[in-house]
Design a binder for these strands. Structure first.
Lengths: 132, 132
DNA sequence: TCATATATATGATAAACACATATAGAAGAT
DNA sequence: ATCTTCTATATGTGTTTATCATATATATGA
């Protein structure tokens, strides 16, 4: 668990900096995860976010770009311009160790949140089995 | 599913009025569910919310009271004062048919959300199994 | 060269949430 | 009696998040 873990202390994450009690800012852990796989840039990350079933097929660019910048401000990612590859210049992001720690924190929180949703659904289904 | 269901049309719920793409407003479906079990009032409902693992043991009273009033404005619940039972007067709420429809809508949405969280966790665990 | 796709960014507004505080009746303690 | 605590509802304010609109600029294909 995240609680009391030393990874949190090492990177000075408050317990818990991921507000997974709510589901808000779910784009943040998704971005962190994608960046844990490989460096990428905003426009590409936006596409990848689709697979997590956000209500709109494309999540708002504003969300993505601002989240990335905010993560950089917190030193969870670092960026540099890529002017070499095709198309307009891309700002490519890489995950930092602190960013990885934050991802782990998110994963813990999301696990808890999943349990809460499951509990809700269990009670709901018990109450309404069959007869909606 | 909620999409295109006639229950949604009957009660003029937009598809989908429950913003379950995000986890925001999770108190709302919880309140609707508790009221589907039996009429209740704010202070009591606040206690029951504990069991869904909100980060704080007691969810903010402001949230609960304002959510209940907003649900009443939308005709999803109706309230009346209970001055008879012990203690200060309670505003007791009852679920309406529209409120029940909204609860069903939420349940659908929360199911989808659970899937998204599961997908995240699955990918996360594949990526980091064992070696955090 | 004109439209479209790629790519990043920000201003303005709206929604959601958190924190503080106010009010007041009931119940129990001293 | 009155003082404190518990129950109960309510709102004002500020902050954080999210949405909507729009701006800019390069590259690509028709």
């Amino acid at each position: 668990m995240f609680e009391g873990s030393n990874i949190a202390k090492k990177y000075k994450l408050k317990e818990c900096e991921c507000p997974s009690g709510k589901m808000t800012r779910f784009v943040e852990p998704c971005l962190l995860f994608f960046l844990s796989q490989q460096p990428s840039y905003g426009y590409e990350l936006m596409d990848k976010l689709d697979q997590f079933g956000f209500q709109k097929s494309k999540p708002d660019p504003a969300m993505v770009y601002r989240t990335l910048r905010s993560l950089e401000k917190e030193k969870c990612v670092v960026s540099k311009w890529d002017t070499k590859s095709a198309g307009p210049a891309k700002r490519t992001y890489e995950l930092t160790p602190k960013g990885l720690a934050l991802l782990h924190a998110w994963a813990d929180g999301i696990g808890l949140r999943k349990q809460a949703l499951e509990k809700f659904l269990k009670l709901y289904q018990e109450r309404f089995k069959g007869r909606k």
